[in-house]
Design a protein around this nucleic acid. Structure first.
Lengths: 194, 194, 194, 194
DNA sequence: GATGAATGAGTGTTCATTCAT
DNA sequence: TATGAATGAACACTCATTCAT
């Protein structure tokens, strides 16, 4: 019974958590939250159900962690998009967003699906408000730098546009003219002569 | 010779169906589809579970009827909005939409939640495509009459805006500046000098 | 409210009972007793569920009447098989039995399935004993007239043979050499030189 | 390091499976398949319904396992019956069969009842064909060794006899002259001078 | 840290039967 | 005689969660 060092233990913990969250994300983003069982997640992660409960105190808790991690990831990507030129930054933002919708539709499906669980899971509402405020502020700053009048209003409109395109893309799938909208929006917001 | 007149029976049936659908709508729009059980709906409607299955052949069938009824209602309201002047029609449309979001947020919650069940319920995808096409066409026609260039592109953008505002309003609730957006959009789309 | 004559009423009753029993027989012989619902039977008979309960006090009661009627039918056919010559009668009996298995396998399926409900439905046991005694007696008489030694023993064997062939034919279906057995048995029992 | 040794777990599993199958056998053989509920079986086995589904994926799956286990048992006994002398083997076979009908009528009730579920459960038909072929072949070989002419035909007749006696014994119970038939058949098939 | 056997309240659904009309 | 809306107990099955080891 050699005692495992604390460091080693910590590493095992981190690795197990990662496996659980990866598996949970994979399954929930594809099948939805209610249709994904703890048993499935544990199996996909190749651990026991009991162990999962060592790390997350409930299915809801796992979901909360999942969402927060996903959004942190989003923030990191976002920060890599910033440039000195606001128009370029905005264009990067658009391109990143459309690329995401094309490449990880499941992720956006999940985010949106979750948004409607606000009544059930209190943490959703808080996160949503925070995110909306963050994105709106960023957009406003960019619009201001680009010389738009009413940058605050334009930011709110643009924020709604992002969400609307996201939801429509996820629902309509192949029937949605995603690339056309990308072109239109970049033209409209980034290329225009002021 | 009939034991209960056909007309009386028909009335009973209609009334029971109404009770079921009202209860189902109330609960599903508030709690979501998966979180609402048949037992709850029957209890709310003050009937037995068995009777519910006299009228709807499954939970999914009930949902489908619910959605279709809701959308028919939506279509009727929509047609009452049309006027001779495109700008007025558009303004009516905006005002109706924002009024709805304020007065029946649960309804929009449900519609949006359902949109994400397209993978599970095949009828959803079909309805979504049909609705999106319908609204986009209407918007395009209005924009064209109002003298917008690129009416098709503007229609797609506006359609996304509606959905985006809808989802943000539903999720952020009191934290969402719904009235401000209403003013902004009406100004932007309906009042502008061409 | 012209009063219907008693005779007319009686005719209606008989006709309704016939419709119910025909429908029940059709469905139960095909699907089995447990898998056939009262609702199905009523629909097939084109009457209401309630009316069915005017004539039969339960599903079990309907089954009992069904079986008894079917067996009466069997008796009638049986009596038409009797001739002056015992060997011819026996051959007729064999030919009738194999013809039945070929043409109405569902009927024999039902009879056999029912036999196993003896523990559940007390009337089954009584009928079975009565039928077995009747057939065994008939066979014994024929064998005796044909000059078999131990006619009683041969009768019991032959009775078991009938049942065994019936069950094997019903279960194995196309895989069972029904016609071959017909030839073998007629040869063995009816054609032999004494 | 495992929390409960794999061997211990395996033992627990085997014991629980045994309890479930014993209980299921007891109830189904007595009451029939459709009339026995999962709840009853779980209660008889003194476990929760949920646990039953840890071991069998459906009621039908449980039945299939039950049948297969029963038939394996049958095969083992069968092989212990074979001797060098065909007449002795045949006599052993008869004696074993009649002993079974006397001592485990419920078992034969279940086997026979199941035979009629071939339309519902596909595995039944396959098993039935296999078993019938197996027994018929064995009988033919014995008859051949004993010098019967037409051993193939006699085998088919004997196979039907076994089934017929089985079904009549199960249905007629105390009213069926089982011991008399045992004597008659052994006399007829095993003691005769060739 | 790790397991998985076990639970129990829950799910959607079926159906024989009743009864007001 | 005839209807069919209504019931309620039962059904097979699921799953988040616990806990002895």
């Amino acid at each position: 019974m050699s005692p495992r060092s604390a460091a080693k233990n910590e590493e095992i913990r981190r690795e197990t958590i990662r496996k659980i969250m990866d598996s949970a994300f994979l399954l929930i983003s594809k099948q939805g939250y209610e249709s994904t069982s703890i048993a499935q997640i544990a199996k996909e992660a190749d651990i026991s159900k009991g162990l999962l409960y060592n790390y997350f105190k409930s299915k809801e808790d796992l979901l909360e962690n999942l969402i927060k991690a996903a959004l942190v990831q989003g923030d990191q990507i976002m920060s890599s998009i910033l440039t000195e030129d606001p128009a370029t930054t905005l264009e990067n933002l658009f391109r990143w967003f459309f690329k995401e919708l094309r490449e990880r539709p499941d992720y956006w499906r999940m985010i949106n699906e979750l948004a409607f669980k606000a009544d059930k899971f209190k943490f959703v509402q808080d996160i949503a408000v925070e995110k909306w405020t963050g994105y709106t502020n960023l957009l406003q700053k960019l619009f201001e730098q680009m010389g738009f009048e009413n940058s605050a209003e334009e930011a709110m409109i643009a924020a709604a546009l992002f969400d609307g395109i996201g939801i429509q893309s996820v629902v309509l799938k192949k029937d949605y003219p995603l690339s056309e909208l990308e072109r239109i929006l970049i033209d409209k917001y980034c290329k225009r002569k002021k």
